[in-house]
Simulated assay, not measured.
Amino acid sequence: MEWMNISYILAFLAVFVASASQILLKQSAETEHKNIITKFLNWRVILGYGLLFGTTVLNVFAYRGIELKVTPMIEATGIIWVTLLAASILGERPTKRTILSIVITVIGIIVFSL
């Protein structure tokens, strides 16, 4: 496989992993904690921030093979991933505003990729 293709896969993977970490951090924020220490030192927070650090490493390797002008379009897919993960894992229903932002994101990705 060509390095450029691997770079795109890494960039999309980094966005997906960052979205998953946002869901973990949101789950931790919505639960009751005994004290301030358990609020910041629980498995969801530690794993969430660990995943965010991992996305930094993935992006370092991904940006070696892709043009920087396409990265905003790849990063914009995070809106879609967060919505899908929140609906499937947290059971949240997307609001009209969320659906509108997804539609605008998809249209923007299509228009700017031409």
Rank of each mutant, 00 (worst) to 15 (best):
M1Q: 14
E2S: 15
E2N: 14
E2P: 13
N5A: 09
I6Y: 11
S7N: 06
I9M: 03
I9Q: 00
L10F: 02
L10E: 02
F12Y: 08
F16L: 15
F16A: 05
V17D: 05
V17E: 05
A18T: 13
A18P: 05
A18E: 06
A18L: 08
S21W: 00
Q22T: 15
Q22C: 09
L24M: 12
L24E: 05
L24T: 05
K26I: 02
S28L: 00
S28I: 01
S28K: 04
S28V: 04
E30S: 14
E30N: 10
E30Q: 08
T31Q: 11
T31W: 11
T31A: 13
H33C: 05
K34S: 13
I36P: 11
I36V: 10
I36H: 13
I37Q: 13
I37A: 11
L41P: 09
N42M: 01
W43C: 13
W43G: 14
V45C: 06
V45G: 10
V45M: 10
V45E: 08
I46N: 02
I46R: 01
L47E: 03
L47T: 07
G48A: 03
G50L: 00
G50Q: 03
L51P: 07
L51N: 07
L52W: 04
G54Y: 00
G54W: 01
T55H: 04
V57E: 06
V57H: 05
L58N: 00
L58V: 01
N59T: 14
V60K: 15
V60T: 08
F61R: 08
R64P: 03
R64S: 11
R64I: 09
R64E: 15
R64K: 09
G65V: 04
I66S: 03
E67T: 11
E67D: 10
E67P: 06
E67S: 15
L68V: 10
P72R: 03
P72I: 00
M73A: 13
M73E: 06
M73P: 08
E75L: 15
G78H: 01
G78M: 00
I79G: 02
I79Q: 14
I79T: 10
T83I: 12
L84K: 04
L84H: 03
L84C: 11
L85K: 05
L85E: 01
A87R: 08
A87G: 09
G91I: 05
E92S: 07
P94V: 01
P94W: 00
T95Y: 05
T95K: 02
T95H: 04
K96V: 08
R97C: 15
S101D: 07
I102A: 03
I102N: 05
I102Q: 07
V103H: 05
V103N: 07
T105P: 00
T105W: 00
T105A: 12
I107E: 03
G108K: 04
I109H: 07
V111Q: 12
V111P: 01
S113A: 09
S113D: 05
S113W: 07
S113C: 07
